[in-house]
Design a protein around this nucleic acid. Sequence first.
DNA 1: AATGAATGAGGGTTCATTCAT
DNA 2: CATGAATGAACCCTCATTCAT
Lengths: 219, 219, 219, 219
Amino acid sequence: MSAASTSPRASEHRRRAARLPATRFDKRLGEILAHATDVFCKKGYEGASMRDLSRTSGMSLAGLYYYFQSKERLLFLIQKHTFTTIVEQLKTRLEGVGSAEQRIRIFILNHLEYFLSNQAAMKVLSHEDDALKNGFASEVKAIKREYYRICVSLLDELKRERGLQFSTRIAVLSLFGMMNWIYTWHHPRVDADADELARQMSDIFLCGVMNAARGRHRE
Amino acid sequence: MSAASTSPRASEHRRRAARLPATRFDKRLGEILAHATDVFCKKGYEGASMRDLSRTSGMSLAGLYYYFQSKERLLFLIQKHTFTTIVEQLKTRLEGVGSAEQRIRIFILNHLEYFLSNQAAMKVLSHEDDALKNGFASEVKAIKREYYRICVSLLDELKRERGLQFSTRIAVLSLFGMMNWIYTWHHPRVDADADELARQMSDIFLCGVMNAARGRHRE
Amino acid sequence: MSAASTSPRASEHRRRAARLPATRFDKRLGEILAHATDVFCKKGYEGASMRDLSRTSGMSLAGLYYYFQSKERLLFLIQKHTFTTIVEQLKTRLEGVGSAEQRIRIFILNHLEYFLSNQAAMKVLSHEDDALKNGFASEVKAIKREYYRICVSLLDELKRERGLQFSTRIAVLSLFGMMNWIYTWHHPRVDADADELARQMSDIFLCGVMNAARGRHRE
Amino acid sequence: MSAASTSPRASEHRRRAARLPATRFDKRLGEILAHATDVFCKKGYEGASMRDLSRTSGMSLAGLYYYFQSKERLLFLIQKHTFTTIVEQLKTRLEGVGSAEQRIRIFILNHLEYFLSNQAAMKVLSHEDDALKNGFASEVKAIKREYYRICVSLLDELKRERGLQFSTRIAVLSLFGMMNWIYTWHHPRVDADADELARQMSDIFLCGVMNAARGRHRE
DNA sequence: AATGAATGAGGGTTCATTCAT
DNA sequence: CATGAATGAACCCTCATTCAT
């Protein structure tokens, strides 16, 4: 873990509280994180002010700085936690699943389920993709890269299994586009839920790459 | 056209200059617009300051306000012009084209060509989707709606022509996701050009919806 | 009291400090208010800049905004405090005084004494009469109306006691004119003090309305 | 006339056009002056912007500067013209009038008539009393001083005629206060007209100074 | 563990004014 | 005679951040 992720104060704290699964510090931190996620979602990272966060979370402006050393670190923690969780969940779900197609369907389902259950967090992840700088940026990018790599490897499996030929990069990034774009349009009351959405997107995407790859689409 | 789009000064100007294709005012305005697009692209709308624009465009801070009455109106003009252009180009290209599939391929090609030729403008359009408020927002939304409607009608044609059944809404929005997401990853030096990209995305998308819709994907 | 007069922060502060006569916040606030009064007096509300106030009060520009949420609210607090004080002082002094004439003399004396002791504040009150808007304006107007009403009732008493007939409105407003105008000419070193001024203005005004009202002035 | 009042351009212009009673320049100037008076009245000198004047008068911003060399000179011209007119009118009316009392009544009537016929101008005169600086200020002050002197001499006449004793300065400034204050309260639809107002104020003031001066008011 | 008080830097916008045309 | 274009200075206000307590 890079230097960016651990402040002296926080680490000291964690050391002293290592015995408990969740210290009061971590609990309070989590609450504020949740509020901040909502605010960043609604106003954007640049558009949200620390005063907004203070108001929403009910903690004083100065109080926030005890938990987060800077606004940027706050965004970093949100993005890192969100991304880490989604990757971990994915890995668990993929264990022991056999066919490449099935594994890709799980990938998509996992992404969309998490997306719709944590819309705010995922919007902050997608929309504030390049808001972080230097150390913070690189750490998030590392996780993102890992996630991307997993998807690439799933598609490569599929190509090997079925003897297909297409640009993995374009396919993967198209898939991410389909999935990540939903924060711009999905309304829980109106639109399909994660299962249904995952099924339909999986169908489109899988049929797409599998047929297109055999040479152009034919009747 | 709503009141938001025409200031007294601009309209007066345009009236007097109706015969000429571009007055000096409009030319200067266009130049600043171009610079502003780049800056908004790099820093985001909220993150970019009018002082940044002043520096980049080489015009004094106060001078900018002679052309744009506010920062918000500046973003509005960029978005409106970009969107209007892409819609007009699309309409021209669609004229006289017969098959639904071909028309969808043109839609995608048109979108990606414009996207890659005007990456900055298109990122500003995609990424600053809800930065505008009230009158400005509604006018841009109207154009967006029209563009969306065109795509919906193309897909409905396809469904009719081929007797397919799938959710047009999800298909259209997935397509937009695939296409709009490219601002997050496309590097001109590394990635395929618009033609190639359009071909591949069209293949994936069309094969996807056409095969998936016949009932699940089958071998 | 309208919403305009109490910010969340100020009210919270006052609640906690209800037992003490003046918190440090209130003290600091009072100091700044005093400086601001001087500056508004010298340069006028519009003509004075927050930078002027910052310079005069020795506090940073941003620091001022911790105490006053806006320049307008600053003026509002000055006007409200000044007006409230003068009305309260008047009420105390009027208690138990019998004859209408005596009561009017007290009214005039009270006004002029306060005026000359707080010249700057009273000029700001008189001269910036319509600088406030909406909620701020209406709250000050309410106090002003009360003050005006008191004067009207005193004159009505006089008319009843002595069986006089004249336009109370014109008389009252003439009296206010005489009194308030002094901010344009009174020089402490040169001109009479409040007692003497009050005596002379009272004589002129009272003799004026009492004789004039009996039918035109006669020898 | 001081240097402040004549710019090279204006004087040259007037020289060339000396034969006509009103040049086109002067006519146009007068129109703008009238509009500016209204704007200064509504928004105050500091609060009114040259853009406001441009909008109201229908002339371009730059065009205004052809007629007025600066915003301050604009206020100066308004104040000077207003004050000069009122003094000239007064002198004409006073000619041949005998008794001091009558002359004072004429003074008051003249002031109030002009005030109510030119409310905006008179408010600008009264309210923006110390907005001008240096040369501009001193020239207006000179006229003001003359006007004040006339009033003083009228009151001194009265004192001599009737053997009264009171402070002329306080009496005169009280009278000005009564009269000038009306811009803060007079509504043409509701309140008495100039004649009636002049009668009542004259009664109050004259009865006041004449009776008060004989020693305190007595029954 | 948490806050009130304070700040330097910078935000978007408007100001009175000029000058080539 | 009048304007469109342009500007430096200043406007009010908010920003992320700090530090004594």
